[in-house]
């Protein structure tokens, strides 16, 4: 099977600091890949190069078999790379339907197109269907989403990405600031995405989450990819050693 996303030799520098140093990365359809590393390891920078926030200094990105070069985040989104940030991508003063269709509203044509009011009913029905497809149920979709909890809002963001046919989902600390039951729900949602065949890159510091949902994990340390393993083949202790730099597959291990 061909990878959906393929990164080769990616480098990103900020002045004298090399935040990402020749990283290779492949993501295959339907897998959840966790991206791990201490603060400053370069995971967020790497992800921002993929989602069009930063422009890499060197290296190539292939997405669905095509060389891509995103200059803005909206370019990446149009190709189907959705990045889900906490609270950043939803308008809390609008309802679920309005958020799912934000920027892509559906209009009716009245009097031969003289008036083009929003087709609220259609958007509401579609929003409901999108949530149903992920088996997410809200009692009332017409409330502004500020009345929803953090986990519920996260679910709306995920449902929106799925509705608009995301080909790759990037989630940056999706369970941060959530209560324990809500964290579990978000993880269940990630499981559902996998069932739908949507690959997920998951950035997280919460190792139990990572072990609960990921198929593979990649550890970064000081801008470099230090290991890449099947989640089933490793454990928390080993991963932590990679994260702090005690283990590193790219250099020969020196005997202590």
């Amino acid at each position: 099977m061909d990878p959906i996303l393929s990164i080769r030799g990616m480098v990103k520098r900020f002045g004298g600091l090399t935040a990402v140093s020749s990283v290779d990365l492949d993501i295959y359809p339907g897998e959840v890949v966790a991206l791990l590393g201490d603060n400053g390891a370069g995971k967020s920078t790497l992800i921002k190069c993929v989602s069009g926030v930063y422009h890499a200094d060197a290296g190539t990105i292939e997405f669905q078999g095509q060389r891509v070069n995103f200059s803005r985040p909206i370019d990446a989104r149009r190709q189907g790379i959705e990045t889900i940030y906490q609270d950043l991508s939803l308008a809390n003063n609008l309802d679920v339907g309005a958020n799912i269709f934000l920027g892509r509203e559906v209009q009716k044509r009245v009097l031969g197109g003289l008036f083009k009011p929003l087709n609220e009913q259609y958007m509401l029905d579609q929003a409901k269907a999108a949530l149903d497809a992920l088996e997410i149920h809200f009692p009332d979709l017409t409330q502004p989403i500020e009345s929803l909890s953090g986990g519920q809002r996260q679910a709306v963001a995920i449902a929106r990405a799925v509705y608009w046919d995301a080909k790759l989902m990037i989630m940056d600390e999706p369970t941060n600031n959530l209560g324990v039951p809500e964290q579990r729900k978000v993880l269940e949602l990630i499981g559902k995405l996998r069932q739908e065949g949507v690959p997920v890159i998951l950035i997280s510091h919460t190792l139990p989450d990572v072990f609960a949902v990921s198929d593979r994990l990649i550890v970064m340390h000081r801008g470099r990819k230090v290991t890449e393993k099947k989640t089933a083949d490793t454990d928390t202790q080993e991963v932590v050693q990679y994260m702090v730099g005690a283990l590193d597959d790219t250099r020969e291990q020196l005997p202590n």
Partner: peptide, 19 residues
């Protein structure tokens, strides 16, 4: 009108959704 509310509610979200 919808975009006006969105920009006032979360300009970052409005930008990200291509408004």
């Amino acid at each position: 009108g919808r975009h006006t509310y969105a920009i006032g509610g979360n300009v970052e979200a409005a930008l990200r959704t291509g408004i």
